[in-house]
Amino acid sequence: MLTVRSLLLALLLLSALAVARTRDLLSAAVIFAGYSLIMATVWQQLRAPDIALAEAAIGAGITSLLFIVTVARTGRYEK
């Protein structure tokens, strides 16, 4: 169980750094959805299923959708 949790936290850190470093904003939005999914799993592991459900629905679902619509309406690459 400990190895799974360490792996999750390492992936979380990695995806957070990847979001910050990616210049392509569409890729960043997709990686951010992955980050939210990992975060939801971490919340569930921390025995907070309520927060996990909200994170999965809002973070991975609605937020990334709104980001993608925003990218479609503005520019795709960071200037």
Partner: peptide, 16 residues
């Protein structure tokens, strides 16, 4: 787990 807010977001996801 869940409630009005999380469930409402899931419903809105269906609409979107």
């Amino acid at each position: 787990p869940g409630g009005g807010f999380a469930g409402g977001v899931i419903l809105a996801g269906g609409f979107i």
